[in-house]
């Protein structure tokens, strides 16, 4: 058994061809998932049972089942249903990319909504009371007080979820998508060199993770500029 470094150099460019797809999956699902998460969170904190309840059930189901199963249900299972095949969304569900986006969005939406809710609940009650005492109504308090503070509180956990989402994109390879993992697996099947290829792939993911963390740290510093006594950033 030998470790063939030349193999790495040959394989890297091919693997990196998949990075575009990886980022498309990450960013598209990330943005759509965040939008979904905001909606779910608002439903959860609305106080109205007919909004809160469905949201809770949704979150419970999507956080309680493996993402891989969710991907398979969307990709393999949905086409079996007539109303999907004949619905207007069929072009999305027919395509593995569309299915991956749908599954990843639905999944990350559930997790991020809980993170946002944690942020909202973490806002000091005294601050909201001061807003009340000054005469601000519910919407004003939520917009000017809760949202900015909750966003800052939620950011660390949100950053972790972005990284989780990155890792979940690798599962797109199980439904024929040629993202970085998909390409790598093909190469390994041909060359029988799992160490060289998979370790290289792992290093690429770790580098991307590193940059995401740096980005998050920067956003955290900017959002938290009012928490520093000396006024520096």
């Amino acid at each position: 058994m030998s470790f063939d470094v030349t193999l790495i150099f040959a394989a890297l460019p091919k693997i990196l061809m998949g990075i575009g797809l990886t980022f498309q999956l990450l960013i598209l699902s990330g943005v759509l998932g965040l939008a979904l998460a905001v909606v779910l969170m608002l439903m959860r904190v609305s106080g109205k049972w007919y909004l809160s309840w469905p949201a809770q059930v949704y979150i419970y189901v999507f956080r309680g089942t493996p993402i891989l199963v969710q991907i398979f249900i969307v990709y393999y299972g949905f086409p079996q249903l007539e109303f999907i095949r004949e619905g207007i969304l069929w072009p999305i569900f027919r395509d593995p990319f569309g299915c991956a986006i749908v599954a990843l969005t639905l999944n990350t939406g559930a997790y991020v909504s809980e993170i946002l809710r944690g942020g909202v609940l973490g806002v000091d009650r005294g601050i909201l009371e001061a807003g009340e005492a000054l005469g601000l109504n519910r919407r004003q308090r939520f917009t000017y007080l809760t949202t900015p503070i909750a966003a800052r509180l939620a950011l660390p956990a949100y950053g972790n979820d972005v990284i989780s989402l990155l890792k979940s994109t690798a599962l797109a390879s199980t439904i024929t998508l040629a993202d970085m993992t998909g390409i790598a697996r093909t190469i390994v099947a041909q060359t029988y060199a799992p160490y060289e290829i998979f370790i290289s792939l792992a290093i690429i993911y770790m580098i991307i993770t590193f940059f995401i963390q740096k980005l998050m740290a920067r956003v955290e510093r900017w959002l938290g500029r009012y928490t520093l006594r000396t006024g520096q950033t």
């Binding site: 890792k167 690798a170 199980t174 390994v188 799992p194 160490y195 998979f198 590193f210």
Partner: peptide, 14 residues
């Protein structure tokens, strides 16, 4: 920082 599926594949085939 590494996708779970990758760790599993690496460990198994490796």
């Amino acid at each position: 920082g590494t996708p779970e599926i990758l760790v599993i594949l690496l460990l198994y085939f490796g």
